[in-house]
């Protein structure tokens, strides 16, 4: 067991294989439920592609798992502004996702101006800016500007929410 444990250590990529496998299984299970009416005009039917795709995903899942256990590793994507010398910084990503979720929860109830302000302010904070007042002003300005820009310029009425009647 210890050897298994040591092999699993640092192999978080197995999670990707598991995800691929799960999606593949899901696609196949879903395909199995489909009814194939006999039809002259559609000999392929709705099942064929899902079965191929599900199969492809399962094969990829197995091969990836084998590849990872043998020491293979996916190269993390580099970029102009990416520094791969330190590990993923969850202290930035999680608050960022938090701001994003806050926006989802708020947008229909409180309206875009409030939720958008929260989103931008929260994101900027998560990314390390500490100019609370300046950031707050910028966030509010952006949210207001896009609200009216979309309404007047594009004819799209974003939800006003709590501020209904004020805006």
């Amino acid at each position: 067991m210890t050897s298994l444990a040591s092999r699993l250590k640092g192999r978080s990529e197995l999670g990707v294989a598991a995800l691929l496998g799960a999606v593949g299984a899901l696609v196949l299970i879903d395909a199995a439920r489909l009814v194939v009416p006999y039809s002259q005009s559609d000999p392929v039917g709705p099942k064929t592609l899902p079965i191929i795709v599900g199969g492809l995903l399962l094969v990829c899942a197995v091969l990836l798992a084998v590849n990872v256990l043998r020491g293979g590793r996916g190269e993390a994507e580099a970029g102009e502004d990416v520094d791969l010398t330190h590990p993923s910084d969850w202290k930035t990503v999680l608050p960022l996702a938090g701001a994003f979720i806050a926006n989802i929860l708020l947008i229909d109830w409180a309206g875009w101006v409030i939720s958008g302000t929260v989103l931008f302010w929260g994101s900027v904070w998560a990314l390390g800016s500490r100019h609370y007042v300046r950031d707050g002003l910028i966030s509010l300005a952006l949210a207001l500007l896009t609200f009216y820009g979309f309404y007047l310029g594009l004819g799209i009425a974003l939800p006003a929410g709590l501020l209904e009647g004020i805006l």
């Binding site: 502004d81 994003f100 958008g116 900027v124």
Partner: peptide, 16 residues
């Protein structure tokens, strides 16, 4: 341009 504004802006406009 400070990065927080750049990436927060991307998220903001993506959401919008």
């Amino acid at each position: 341009l400070p990065r927080p504004y750049l990436y927060a802006g991307i998220l903001f406009f993506a959401t919008l």
